[in-house]
Amino acid sequence: MESLLAWGHYLAGITWIGILYYFNFIQVPFLKVVTPETKAEAFKHLVPNALWWFRWGALFTWVFGAALLMNQHRMGSAFLLQGPDAVIGMGAWLGTIMLLNVWGIIWPNQKKVLGLKEATPEEKAKAGRMALLASRTNTMLSIPMLFFMANSGHASGLF
């Protein structure tokens, strides 16, 4: 069970964070320099697909991670940052904030940007800015999040 949950957590996590880095390091700079026609095509045929894998990857990563912690009977001590479980707990907190950013800020604002939800041009511009800042925040948070996740085992010797 443990192995299956860990596998699911990594598989979904790579999907999520891989697309997060694609958005920040590749797609945003690309959309800044292309023609309005190309941008419109990307908004119709590329960005919605990327966002689908991104948000569901985020949710499944969290669910598998939470199931792993529950399976190990350390969900409470992790989130309460108690003793050695504070290491994985910090990773879990950062991951939880990132999940809430995805579903609570990035996705609702992207729906306005993509025209899936009605919005005036001013609202669209504001939504685009909010989505970018939340996405950049998640990119920033992913750096310490991965540090704590990767070093939560006994073998790391860092804690």
Partner: peptide, 30 residues
């Protein structure tokens, strides 16, 4: 000084700084 999140390099730098800060915090708890 602008928002560090406006650039990729600023975002990554902020991520490393935050890692060091949180490492110190968790180190105290463990």
């Amino acid at each position: 000084m602008g928002n560090p999140l406006d650039t990729i390099s600023g975002t990554i730098t902020a991520g490393f700084v935050l890692t060091v800060v949180l490492y110190g915090l968790v180190k105290m708890l463990v």
